[in-house]
Amino acid sequence: MKSKMTFESAVSRLEEIVASLQDSTVSLEESLKLYEEGAKLSKYCYETLEKAEQKVRTLTGEETINEA
């Protein structure tokens, strides 16, 4: 799993996986793979939620963009 994954995309993917698992046309091998991925995602989401600490930063007055 990529570390760059956002919480929202993880939740979306998890929902997708749950929907696929309820579709009996998906092969059993695929289902097992999906379940494994889903279990990982679910763990990632839990941990992210549990460990989160708010970061606050300020946009400073200095612009990084040059406006000629």
Binding site: V11, E15, L21, L28, Y35, G38, S42, C45, L49
Partner: peptide, 20 residues
């Protein structure tokens, strides 16, 4: 609320595989 939803989703995930 998100945690509760996640809990539910996790259960559905498990059940789906079990059902399958």
């Amino acid at each position: 609320e998100v945690l509760r939803n996640l809990l539910h989703t996790d259960e559905v995930l498990r059940n789906s595989l079990q059902n399958r």
